[in-house]
Computed example of a mutant assay.
Amino acid sequence: MERVHQINPFAKRDDHSKRSIILYKTLTTLSWLLALVVTFYYTFNKPHDGSGHRGSIWHQNGDHHTAFRMNKIIASIYWLVLFILQAGYIAHLFSGNVETRTPACAVGSHFILNNLFHFAFVMLFVRGHFAWAEVMLIINFINLTSLYFRHVGYSRFIHEPVVSGPLAWTFVAIYWNGAIMVPHATSLVARIFGNVFIWSILAYGLFFIVIYKDYTMGFNLSVLAAAIGVAQFFRQVIAFQWIFAFTIMAVLFVATIAIAVPASAGRDYRWRRQAQSATAPADRERAPLLADN
């Protein structure tokens, strides 16, 4: 078992060898550049190979008037900010401070895997292979969920770009791509299912806000809900989907502020009864955003 632990790239470690640090620096940077270049290229260009329904990322989004169609401007800004924050995370790997570098290395394997799955998703999505793209999203969702629950307590400068940002996107993208994948996605039945499933974004966000006080998940999901709401509004003014999306956005944003403001002021606001205060120290260790180091 000890041998398995040593060779397992996803195992928790308190320190890392010089060789593994160099490996993390190299693979993390290369995989991030791969995801970055492919995303930017296919934002403006369509592939010239393949036999499916080819198009750029937002051409595919615009061609399919599903219940989860997104506004390309808001979604593009989301990814632009996320890539910038991820560059900041990568800088942690090159830090001379061991306390800064160690947690960055700890999440490195999951981050590299996330970049590879994102690359595969984009390559499949723009070529119209939506079913295989969905598989990539689901596997990456499992990867990022495992990362979230196995590595908590890290700085927000690691948590946001590596964990909550990609996880929030992947969760919503499963519905986004899944709606495109389903035949007759613009039918009345599909719209009704969309009206129901969009509320899972609210439930998912509130889970992390209430249980983990993770205001980054709340904010990320509120932005993506806004992207859906804007796109649905301009598609059809008289419809429930954009109303639901903006309601979800508002609730998540308010809940996010309710958690973020006390946290930024150093006050630990809890959505629990006073009788549970004895368990606060353990809960505080589980909260991913309270530690700045």
Rank of each mutant, 00 (worst) to 15 (best):
L206S: 00
A265S: 14
I243T: 08
V251H: 01
R267Y: 15
S277G: 13
Y204K: 03
A203K: 08
F246V: 10
P262T: 06
A265L: 13
A231C: 09
T247I: 13
A280P: 05
A280D: 12
F219W: 10
S264Y: 15
V196I: 13
K213G: 14
V251P: 10
I243C: 13
L252S: 08
D268R: 14
V196R: 01
I228Y: 04
N195D: 13
S222V: 03
A275V: 04
G229E: 05
N195W: 11
I259H: 14
Q276P: 06
L221W: 07
F233A: 15
F208E: 01
S222H: 01
W242Y: 04
S222T: 00
V223I: 06
A231N: 08
D268P: 02
Y215Q: 05
W242H: 15
R272N: 10
R270K: 12
F244K: 07
I238R: 13
A203S: 13
V196K: 11
A280N: 14
Q236E: 14
L202R: 01
Y212L: 02
I201C: 12
F193L: 08
A250C: 09
L224K: 00
T247S: 14
Y212S: 01
A255E: 07
F219N: 11
A250N: 07
F197C: 05
G229A: 09
A278C: 04
I228S: 10
L252A: 00
L221C: 09
R272V: 09
Y204I: 02
F233L: 13
T216Q: 10
F197S: 15
G218I: 01
A203R: 05
F208N: 01
L206W: 11
A255T: 00
S200R: 07
I228W: 13
V237A: 12
P262K: 09
G205R: 09
A275S: 14
A280G: 02
F244D: 12
T256W: 01
I211E: 09
F193S: 10
G266K: 08
M217Y: 13
I201L: 12
L206T: 00
D268N: 08
R272P: 03
Y204W: 15
R270H: 04
Q236Y: 10
A226W: 06
V230G: 07
L252F: 07
P262W: 01
N195F: 02
W242G: 03
F219H: 02
V210H: 09
V230N: 09
S222Y: 04
M217Q: 11
A225F: 00
Q276W: 13
L206D: 00
V210G: 07
L252H: 14
F253Y: 06
A280I: 14
L202Q: 02
P262Q: 01
I243A: 14
V210P: 02
S277R: 13
A275T: 11
L224H: 03
V251G: 12
V210A: 11
V237H: 12
Q232R: 15
F246I: 09
M217H: 04
S264T: 09
Y215V: 06
R235K: 03
V210S: 12
A255Y: 05
Q274D: 11
L221I: 01
A203M: 09
I259G: 06
Y215C: 06
G229P: 02
K213I: 00
F208K: 00
T216Y: 14
I228D: 01
L252V: 08
F208P: 02
L224N: 00
T256Q: 06
Y204F: 15
A275D: 15
Y204G: 12
V196A: 11
A278G: 15
W271C: 07
F197L: 11
A245M: 02
I209R: 04
V251W: 04
R272W: 10
